[in-house]
Design a protein around this nucleic acid. Structure first.
Lengths: 203, 203
DNA sequence: TAGATTGTTAATCGATTAACAATC
DNA sequence: TAGATTGTTAATCGATTAACAATC
């Protein structure tokens, strides 16, 4: 079911959700056309995307805003809580430990892992920093389902191996390195510098 | 010329570059097939992508590694220095101010802007933090061509307006907000929480 | 020469857009 | 009813893959 959705569509769902949550002023309904105009997309595309969720539009009026928000949240799993951990408690890792935005998607960032003894045992953003060598034990204990890799490039592969060993199957990787993981594991890469470079080529 | 490249291809170029720079062990040549296998891509796709750069393969042997790296760097503009500024000197902004990876793409992060008087006038990662109200003057002075928005969602629109006013035409936006900018401006969005949510839906 | 590789042209596949029937 | 909107089916567009000639 959820595997049938194109990645491109899936990537737009959070955009719709953000838009719906930050607009509307008490309007009860919203049409695909209105969403499309606001986000500069085609309106058929919007309807097709929304059709992957349980949302049902009403002819003549559009979608009930609240229902649509609920359908998107349900589809994106915002209601079933999931636990995430940050690997690498440097600048980026620390920032993510203090970032409040994950909660909207039902994600609880519960801990960080690092190899720096100055950081291990401490807290950042109110979250404990554990020794990376304890990853196996702690991720199991905390039921960590998602990992964010924020270590320098040269350590990223090792961390990925640890994650595979821990059975943490979903990995968001900020290191500019291609990670090889077994079947059943998923990696998404965010290379901030490359994104900025692409931008400067485009412009 | 550069506008002819599909975004999908453009996005893969930094991946090729990273791979080439971190592999090879003194090998002089590399074939599209070898790159394709390493990155799990089709080999024709790799050749097509590389053809957008000035790289020229040699039949029987592949590409000269050094030439290919140079062609990618040239295409991605790694050799002409560009100046970037960070807007929002919070956790994420501070992390980016200290991050060394931009240099690979010819990007110099030279300053941050914020509205917090406790931060203004100080330095983070050796880079000065200026008052956002001085953005117009300072971006001109420093010849800032790229901006990274790291402020909380509610301020992102205002910052984008400032950037438009400053004529900073390329914007990387970490706030989960859709920014409207005039023709000729480019925005790329990175919503970290949404990326993590997508990952958890996929898996 | 035979074989490996590039680069290009044609075919396929998937995503987006257009057309349109259904509905309230 | 007329008009606005959804949801679906068909057409288009663009990106990826397959086929293959050229080459060293």
């Amino acid at each position: 079911m959820k595997s049938d959705i194109p990645v491109t569509s899936l990537q737009r769902l959070p955009v719709y959700l953000n838009y719906l949550k930050t607009s509307g002023n008490g309007e009860q309904y919203i049409s695909s056309g209105a969403i499309a105009r606001a986000l500069s997309l085609g309106e058929v595309l919007v309807r097709k995307d929304l059709a992957f969720t349980s949302a049902q539009g009403r002819t003549r009026v559009g979608y009930v805003r609240e229902e649509l928000i609920a359908a998107l949240e349900e589809y994106l799993g915002c209601n079933n809580r999931k636990t995430a951990a940050i690997f690498g408690a440097g600048g980026l890792g620390s920032a993510l430990l203090s970032y409040g935005g994950f909660g909207n998607y039902g994600i609880d960032v519960v801990a960080a892992f690092d190899n720096d003894s100055a950081k291990i045992g401490g807290e950042i953003g109110g979250k404990p920093v554990f020794d990376i060598n304890e990853a196996r034990e702690k991720t199991r204990e905390l039921d960590v389902k998602l990992a964010v890799i924020c270590v320098p490039a040269k350590y990223a592969k090792d961390v990925a191996d640890v994650l595979v060993d821990c059975g943490v199957r979903a990995i968001l990787n900020f290191a500019p390195v291609l990670l090889k993981v077994p079947e059943g594991f998923v990696v998404r890469n965010i290379d901030v510098a490359a994104n900025l470079a692409i931008l400067s080529v485009t412009q």
